[in-house]
């Protein structure tokens, strides 16, 4: 699969390094940065059955016991957890504190006793996982940043992840493939690329790919200049996930009946990429934070619009 490894790579790599650089102790930097550089695999552990994008609602407990934490609870949609060695985990270290305050970031060893990883399958056939913690012991030295600061650290991690998701090359690859396809494929004796409608569609998608590229480069530019990226990072993520769906959908229309053929099937074109993209890409508008929620973040942080008032509802047990 062309993009799946990229997809997983984006979710599991590239996020932890900068955060440990920024928030870790000298000992932690010494311990983890070489491991990350050597390719240690991390799975992200943010989402829970009752906490999606709203990380503040998460319930997995990390109770102090001597120099350790004892972890109990469950994470969902932990992509790559079945292959990864470590779990980059947001856990509640203090249930007494307000919900944003009592969360800490902890690195857990997925091979430790008491950890169970079970398979979940998405509609696109991708594997993701549930991870269960049953009295799992983790040294407190595995906590990154101060206790209770996990929310803030996670926010910067998510911003990095959202930017990271957007820098993928494959929308361009797919559009280039479609342009090539339109030039080479004849329908009713004429190349598809001479159809005015198809020319307009592919030109537009090609423009979209440029915008995506520019969003990604702008993000890098802002990071270099040490500017606040909390509201601009999601641009890439939103734009890319929705563009992916447009490419898949309009690609299907351009390819017509051939579009629906899976890779490996007789007559499949472009290695079945468009068919696979059509199924896979739906996931991307809610992975890494739902696009709807991200739009509110953009408008409130970037333009100073007021947040939606929180309803005073009891937290579910």
């Amino acid at each position: 699969m062309l993009w799946a490894p990229g997809l997983l790579g984006g979710l599991t790599g590239g996020v932890q390094g900068p955060i440990i650089m920024q928030h870790g102790t000298p000992e932690q930097k010494k311990e983890w940065l070489p491991k990350i550089a050597a390719g240690a695999q991390f799975a992200l552990g943010y989402t829970e059955p009752n906490a999606g994008t709203d990380l503040a609602s998460l319930q997995i407990r990390a109770a102090k016991d001597g120099n350790d934490y004892i972890l109990n609870g469950q994470k969902m949609f932990s992509t790559g957890a079945h292959n990864a060695r470590y779990h980059w985990l947001a856990a509640r270290t203090n249930p007494e504190m307000p919900k944003h305050k009592g969360v800490s970031m902890i690195i857990a060893d997925l091979t430790a006793p008491g950890v169970t990883v079970t398979k979940l399958t998405t509609i696109a056939g991708d594997r993701t996982n549930e991870v269960f913690y049953d009295n799992v012991r983790v040294p407190q030295t595995n906590r990154i940043g101060p206790e209770g600061e996990g929310w803030n650290i996670t926010r910067s991690a998510l911003a990095a992840e959202r930017g990271d998701l957007g820098t993928f090359p494959w929308p361009k690859i797919l559009v280039d493939e479609l342009i090539q396809y339109a030039k080479e494929t004849k329908r009713n004796g004429k190349p598809l690329s001479e159809d005015p409608q198809i020319r307009q569609t592919l030109a537009q998608l090609s423009m979209d790919v440029s915008v995506l590229r520019l969003f990604g480069r702008r993000l890098n530019y802002m990071i270099e200049k040490n500017q606040d990226i909390s509201w601009s990072a999601p641009f890439s993520k939103i734009f890319e996930s929705e563009l992916s769906q447009r490419i898949a959908n309009q690609g299907m229309n351009i390819m017509g009946l051939y579009g629906q053929l899976e890779q490996g099937s007789k007559y499949a074109k472009l290695k079945g990429h468009i068919e696979l993209a059509y199924l896979t890409m739906v996931v991307r508008s809610f992975g890494g934070g739902s696009n709807l929620r991200l739009r509110s973040d953009i408008a409130t942080r970037g333009m100073g619009l007021p947040r939606e008032p929180q309803l005073a509802m009891p937290v579910k047990k």
Binding site: M207, S210, V211, L214, F215, R218, S232, F235, I238, F239, L292, L294, R295, S296, I298, A299, T300, G302, M303, L305, P306, R307, E308, P309
Partner: peptide, 27 residues
């Protein structure tokens, strides 16, 4: 009883326009 800017539907309109305008700028 609240600024219309606190409604998610307005957030979304504004967020879309922010991305649209930034796209104009960078292109």
């Amino acid at each position: 009883d609240r600024p219309i800017g606190s409604f998610p539907v307005i957030h979304h309109l504004i967020a879309n326009a922010m991305m649209d305008v930034d796209a104009c700028k960078f292109l």
